[in-house]
């Protein structure tokens, strides 16, 4: 597996001043997926936006791992509902004209 698209976890810890245990907990709860390549842990680069969001919630807002899990799930639900709302609004337009 090519590691070009993966970011080493220790680098993220350094960069964002968070402990490795933070990422392990996110991994355990299923919010991120840690990939091990040749005994080193990595995160896929496409997931960096989500991870940054979780780090901000943790550091800036003092939200613990369980809280992050709840927030992320609720945000996903909001996103789904917003998409449904857009689709329903588009359908409603058919009958408004």
């Amino acid at each position: 597996m090519s590691i070009e698209k993966f970011i080493p976890l220790h680098k993220l810890c350094e960069l964002y001043k968070v402990k490795m245990s933070f990422f392990s907990s996110l991994n355990e709860i299923g919010l991120i997926e840690i990939i091990t390549i040749e005994e080193s842990n990595y995160i896929h680069q496409d997931k960096i936006n989500d991870i940054e969001k979780m780090i901000r919630m943790h550091i800036d807002l003092d939200i613990n791992i369980e809280g992050i899990d709840i927030a992320i799930n609720l945000l996903q639900k909001i996103d789904e509902l917003e998409n449904e709302l857009i689709s329903l609004k588009n359908r409603l337009k058919i009958y408004e004209n």
Binding site: R56, M57, D60, I63, A71, L75, D79
Partner: peptide, 13 residues
């Protein structure tokens, strides 16, 4: 903290 949790852009995209 209380207000930031309410209005943080990550929680209010």
């Amino acid at each position: 903290r209380k207000l930031a949790r309410k209005y943080h852009p990550d929680l209010n995209p």
